[in-house]
Design a protein around this nucleic acid. Sequence first.
DNA 1: GGCGTGACTATGG
DNA 2: ACCATAGCCACGC
Length: 115
Amino acid sequence: MTSKIEAQSFNALVYEIVKMIPCGRVTSYGAIAKAIGFPNYSRRVGTALAQCGEQDERIPAHRVLNSNGYLSGAANFSAPGQMQKLLEQEGIVVVKNKVRDFKFLFWNPIDEISI
DNA sequence: GGCGTGACTATGG
DNA sequence: ACCATAGCCACGC
């Protein structure tokens, strides 16, 4: 038996989490994957965000980084530097394509869900 | 089914 | 800190 999940449902779950990320905070693909119960689906989280389109302001996709705090999705935004710009507008400092104080700014979705 | 690719992650040198 | 490797899953050809 396959315990797969419809891409549509998976994407919806991802967007749910991303919308919860507070302004000025960030999280990672892997953390989101774990939060929705698919710890090995980090790549698919990225795929989901690539499909949502960053012009959709309801989904703050710029707050999602890789596990090292790098802006690995920057190239997917409409304009070069757009992701960094959005982060800086929230007071987040980006150096060399990486968020400074990533560990400190990290927001873990699981901490919010398991209340 | 193989193979390359992608907004990933963990680990080791 | 940088690079390579391996594991991971969906998609398209």
